[in-house]
Write a protein that binds this DNA or RNA. Sequence first.
DNA 1: TAATCCATGAACAGATCATGGATTGGTCTG
DNA 2: CAGACCAATCCATGATCTGTTCATGGATTA
Lengths: 230, 230
Amino acid sequence: MSGTAPHILVIDDEQQILRALRTILGQHQYQVTTARNGEEGLALAAAVQPDVIILDLGLPDMSGIEVCQRLREWADMPIIILSAHDTEPEKVAALDAGADDYLTKPFGVEELMARVRVALRHRSRSSSSKSSLITAGNVTIDLAAHLVTKNGQPVKLTATEYRLLAYLAGNAGRVLTHQAILNHVWGYAEDSQMEYLRVYIRQLRQKLEDDPRNPQLILTESGVGYRLMT
Amino acid sequence: MSGTAPHILVIDDEQQILRALRTILGQHQYQVTTARNGEEGLALAAAVQPDVIILDLGLPDMSGIEVCQRLREWADMPIIILSAHDTEPEKVAALDAGADDYLTKPFGVEELMARVRVALRHRSRSSSSKSSLITAGNVTIDLAAHLVTKNGQPVKLTATEYRLLAYLAGNAGRVLTHQAILNHVWGYAEDSQMEYLRVYIRQLRQKLEDDPRNPQLILTESGVGYRLMT
DNA sequence: TAATCCATGAACAGATCATGGATTGGTCTG
DNA sequence: CAGACCAATCCATGATCTGTTCATGGATTA
C-alpha cells in the first residue's frame, strides 16, 4: 500500500482526453493505464487490478453503463464516470449501476484529482482491514510486495499465474466458481476459457505443491470451482 | 436488507431545504435526523451514529469545511456536501477535508438519492464480511465459503449433495416434502426423480451421520419428506 | 398381512478434470 | 535484423469424479 504509486485505469475513446489525463495523472504521481474501448477496458481492469477506474460513458463498442455493470460482477475498485451528458436520469443510472462518482464535461482538473483522492481514500479504508500477507500451508503470498515464497524460497510466477493465485489467496478457504475466477483473472468468462484455467491451476500446483499429484493447497471442487486451503 | 432502515443526518440551516429533504428521504424509507447548525450537527452525529451525513456548506456558526474536519477526527461515515457555490477550489477543499461527495444547488432530487445509495453501498461494503454459518448437530455449513465441516473436519460434498444439504439446512427443523426438495435441488419434480432424492439422502447420511444406519441429523418422515434436525 | 415406502450397494456412462506437449506471439538481446 | 526466450494459448489423451439407474431387502403404514 504505502510502497507503490496508486494505479489508475482510464477508459476513454477520445485521444485528446486520454493524453490530457495521462499527463495530469502522471504529474500527480499516479501510475496510468489506458484503454480505448469497453472490451479492452474490462480485460485491462482484470489484468492490472487498478486502484481506481476512470470511465467515459461514451464508448464506441458498448455503453459505459454496461461496462460498469460487468465490472461490478467481480470488481470492487472505485469507478469514476466522465460524461458529456448532464441529464439526471443518466447520472442515476450510472450511479446505480455501480459507479462511485459522476463528473460532467467539461470538468475542472483539480476537482477530478480531488475526487480521485476521495476514491483512493475509500479503497484504502476498506482494504486496510485485511493484511496483505497471506499464508497457506508452507506458501506465503505478500500482495503488497508482489512476492510469493515457498518454504522461504522465492517462487517465480508469471503475471497471469500471480493474478490467479492472488485472487485465490484473497478468498482463501472459500470456493471460487470457475465463472468468478475467469471474470476476475481474464476479465471475461466463456466456457472455452475453462481450459486456460485448468492449465494455470496445474502450473500453480506444479510450482507450489509439495506433491503436485496430490494437491493440498489448491483443491478442486468438481463441477464448481477451486479453493485455496487456509 | 433485513435490519433497520438506514439512518441519515441532515445538517442545514435553511428550513425549506430541511423540510424538503426530510420528506424525500422519508419517502425513500430512510430514518432522518436534522440539525440546524454545525455545533448541533457534530453533537447529533456522535449521538445517533448515522449511516450517512448530508451537510450544507453554508452554516451560521461555522464553515462546513470545519464541520467536515472535526467529524473526520473520529467518524468515518460518508459525508455528502451540499453547496450553493460551484467554484472548483471550494469543491477541492471540501473533498480534501474528508467529504465523500459534493453537489451544487440546485441539484436534482433523484441524483441526491442515487448518491446517497452510493454512500450506503460504501458503508455496507466495508463493514460486511461475515460468513453465514448454519449449525446442525456437530455439522456446520458455511454458505459463503461453500464449506461443510463435521466436528471441525472438512467434508467433501459434490455439487448436488451440497445443494440438497444447503436447502435442508436453510429450513432446519422443518419437514420438507419430496416435491419441494426436488423442485429446489433438481429444478423439477417428477415421481421418477424420487430415486435421486433417496440416493442423495443416503450419501449425505453416509458422510455426515455418526451412525448412518441410525440417522440423527437427517430424519425420514415417511410418506412426506425429510427433516434436518436443529 | 399386504401394500407401500424406504435404504442399500453396486454398476454404468457421460461429464469433468489433469497432464504433457505443441503452437503462437511478443519481447529482449546480440 | 535474426535468433533465443518466455508466456499465453491451444490441443489430444487418459484418469477421475458424478449423476443416474437398477435390483434387492428392510421398514413402515393401513
